[in-house]
């Protein structure tokens, strides 16, 4: 929508007041707007033409037809409204990403009172996604979100729109979800690992050796295990998802420390730490992170890596 900046600001403020952010939103008449689509106007024009035709031919039945079209249009107002009304939305999961790339937020839609057909959701300037929710069920939708810079990226105002059932009218609502995505720092390469402990030879960490670890056996995959350790060959043969067990590496535990990066800017420090987390992760050597106000014990695996990266992203308010 194009409008002059002051009006646009006023409009935004009005919207923000009318639709405050919430973690869970159920659309009601206060939130739903409705307006004819282009085709809706065309439809009314057809109705008017038929009306004129009916008048000119003095044909009551053609008049009735014109009135039927108009009545259908009116009934469609209610039906289009109804299709959005009572649609519930709440925060789902979020998927973090590096700053400058994209994260994703999960919106869980729930239909308490009725089916909702062909509902479109989109952030401003993003592609819309369509979804239908049956009564009493929940569906979730992942919407990509650009992450311009490190930190918490709050969800923009979500536009929920539907033209169902006749396409003559568009009902829409803006929903401000109190939901955010974490943007990890952009990794910045740095030759020195800001880490304590472990083997003295730092080089070996970045050389990507994996031969150190000794294969021990398999155990059932549990959520959170590194996908790199899954016995994919076995999985391909239909043996189910199992995780390869390795012996604890001999190198011992590593601590990535904020304090080791004295003299650098905050963001730069975070970026370097991020880079090293990514470097250390494939090594299967436990590594921990120490930030001002937060210490995360050494461990390995995807979940651990995510926890560390999320900590970097949310610095300094964990």
């Amino acid at each position: 929508m194009l409008m002059p900046a002051p009006i646009r600001n006023l409009y935004e403020r009005w919207l923000a007041r009318r639709l405050p952010p919430a973690r869970q939103v159920v659309l009601d008449q206060r939130r739903i707007f409705i307006f004819p689509t282009g085709y809706g106007f065309f439809y009314l024009l057809v109705s008017a033409l038929l009306f004129i035709g009916g008048i000119n031919y003095e044909n009551n039945l053609i008049l009735a037809l014109a009135f039927l079209l108009a009545s259908l249009f009116m009934v469609a107002i209610l039906h289009t409204f109804r299709n959005l009304s009572a649609l519930g939305m709440r925060n789902g999961d979020s998927e973090s990403g590096f700053a400058g790339e994209e994260g994703a937020l999960e919106i869980v839609l729930f239909a308490q009172r009725r089916d909702h057909h062909c509902v479109w959701l989109r952030w401003p300037d993003q592609d819309a996604q369509q979804i239908s929710i049956r009564r009493g069920e929940e569906e979730s939708l992942w919407l990509n979100l650009p992450l311009p810079e490190r930190g918490r990226v709050t969800a923009p105002r979500l536009r929920v729109e539907s033209r169902f059932p006749l396409g003559l009218l568009r009902s829409w609502s803006y929903v401000s979800m109190d939901h955010y995505c974490l943007a990890w720092p952009r990794p910045q390469e740095s030759p020195d690992c800001p880490a304590d402990g472990g083997k003295e030879n730092q080089q070996s960490f970045s050389s990507g050796q994996t031969g150190n670890d000794e294969f021990q056996g398999l155990r059932n995959y549990t959520a959170g295990d590194s996908l790199r350790r899954v016995d994919w060959k076995g999985y391909a043969r239909g043996r189910g998802l199992n995780t390869k067990q390795f012996e604890e590496p001999v190198g011992g535990r590593l601590w990535l420390r904020w304090d080791r990066l004295q003299g650098l800017g905050e963001e730069q420090r975070l970026s370097i730490l991020c880079y090293w987390i990514l470097q250390l992760d494939p090594q299967r050597q436990p590594y921990g992170l120490e930030l001002p106000g937060l210490t995360l014990a050494p461990d390995t695996g995807d979940v651990h890596r995510w926890r560390l990266l999320d900590a970097l992203a949310s610095y300094p308010d964990f």
Partner: peptide
């Protein structure tokens, strides 16, 4: 569940 060589699932 793991060693499924020569088995009939």
């Amino acid at each position: 569940p793991v060693d499924q060589a020569g088995t009939f699932v």
